[in-house]
Design a protein around this nucleic acid. Structure first.
Lengths: 208, 208
DNA sequence: CCCAAATATCACCAGTTGGTGACATTTTGT
DNA sequence: ACAAAATGTCACCAACTGGTGATATTTGGG
């Protein structure tokens, strides 16, 4: 009869519960960011008791690590889609920059985590950043082959700066729809940015 | 005898108290960022009751606005120090980028506010960003004179991208001492970045 | 002088947070 | 069949948050 004594608890399936907790944490992070992100909010969202987070993940840190494992190779997964290897260093850099831009624009969760890394750098969160940048440089080394940038050009730093520009623009756009007065809402806005980045790539690496 | 009945309250000086509150908020923000930044923390730091924040500023928002007023022209104040007008567009852009980099690197408070704008965009905080970018574009227009960028180059967006790159690098450096695996701690690191930015300016605007 | 306004502080409120111990129920191993 | 372990839920804790009403004390104008 279910006599209002036990209001049907969730089925006892640890794997399922763990997955629900990870999903709840990820969705919550992607939707609202790390503000108001806490153990209570995650448990509430997952519809189960926070005690389980302690039991199964050892706390919120462990839960974050579980998320981190999922997106360690985030950038590589959606960058290495081109069949043909790049024909020039310029092309390699172009694929890196524009691929990064598209991937980041489409992934709210990673955007929020990147913001988190800037705003509240805890050891736990920094590990996510480290894994990401390691995967990214690994991809570059693998794709580079024997292509070389022009002489007298610190390509690593130039690329880092372009990545930084894209990252800042995307994060700012998600927050306010603009950066430094430049609107970043319509597709035309983004195409204008892409054109400017193309100009810079042309200028630095040559129109290859 | 001050018989433990009245533990000497602060002197009744509204102007002084308001200044103390603004200073407390600013210092707290610069030191710890907007995490744990609340009305209780500010009042505690200022050594007076939070009620005064409600009375004198109408709440935390008003206090933030008071800070915003102080640094509305932040970037202009420390950019327009050069006596001679720029001799070329390249020189203008160089002053903008490197001046911005130096100013931002030296100002922890503005760094934290910029992070705030990304991480927790509330209407109140966004007003600060708007005032800043308005002042910045105003400076550009005033300094530009009749200098013009090369044809076929969307200089406004190129400059915005370079500013974005610098901003991302500085914020990331303050948080973790690196960006995308590139260390940003020693002066040599920053000189390397400056050199790369110089390369990009050369390439886009010509070595002038 | 006296009363009103201004100033400063305190006491309390409801709500939230992270964290822990106890309990009930189900599953599993022997 | 029975005990032990695993799973899920609840109740509670101290600490903190933003917010408000009441109360002292001082200042200043009439």
């Amino acid at each position: 009869m279910n006599d209002t004594l036990t209001p049907d608890p969730r089925p006892r399936d640890r794997a399922r519960t763990e997955a629900a907790l990870v999903a709840a944490a990820r969705d919550l992070l992607a939707e609202s960011g790390f503000q108001n992100f806490g153990i209570n909010a995650v448990a509430r969202r997952a519809g189960c008791d926070k005690q389980l987070i302690y039991r199964y993940f050892g706390g919120l840190d462990g839960l974050i690590d579980a998320i981190g494992g999922e997106l360690a190779d985030w950038i590589v997964d959606r960058l290495a889609t081109d069949a043909a290897p790049p024909a020039s260093y310029r092309q390699l850099a172009e694929r890196l920059i524009f691929g990064f831009m598209a991937a980041l624009r489409a992934d709210m969760l990673v955007q929020k985590i990147m913001t988190w890394e800037i705003a509240d750098p805890s050891p736990m969160v920094m590990r996510l950043a480290q894994a990401r940048s390691k995967a990214l440089t690994g991809w570059m080394l693998r794709q580079r082959g024997d292509l070389a940038p022009p002489d007298g050009c610190d390509a690593a730093v130039v690329n880092a700066a372009l990545i930084a520009a894209v990252q800042m623009m995307v994060l700012s756009a998600s927050a306010s729809g603009a950066f430094a007065g430049m609107p970043l809402r319509a597709d035309a806005d983004w195409q204008r940015l892409a054109a400017a980045l193309g100009t810079m790539l042309d200028a630095v690496y040559g129109p290859g």
